[in-house]
Amino acid sequence: MAYSDKVLDHYENPRNVGAMDKNDTAVGTGMVGAPACGDVMKLQIKVNDAGVIEDAKFKTYGCGSAIASSSLLTEWVKGKTLEEAGAIKNTQIAEELALPPVKIHCSVLAEDAIKAAIDDFRKKGGKTPDAAQESA
């Protein structure tokens, strides 16, 4: 299978690989996919008080297109508000990376991952870790 230069670039030099403390209430974590299907994406966002994504990290088990989709997404969401990040569509990712039809599901997974991360952050209600402990 021939990959686009952009997929190869993200695959060779993935951006923002890593993990953040998932118990930190400023962090939202989205994990989507399943090992049995051949891809799992974990996307994490750190959101500041103004509701802007300050940082994003990912880890992905999957094919080169899945790795590239999540790597690209971390670049895109940084500096965006939650609303802006939640509005990113898989078609934009697929277009940017020139994904072939059999790899479109990789971009769908990336869209699911950012939505899941935003949901997770919102569910936590933006409390600080200390406040969460006190209420427990």
Binding site: A19, M31, Y61
Partner: peptide
């Protein structure tokens, strides 16, 4: 594996 959430 450094990239893999499953390995983590």
């Amino acid at each position: 594996r450094e990239l893999s959430p499953l390995w983590e």
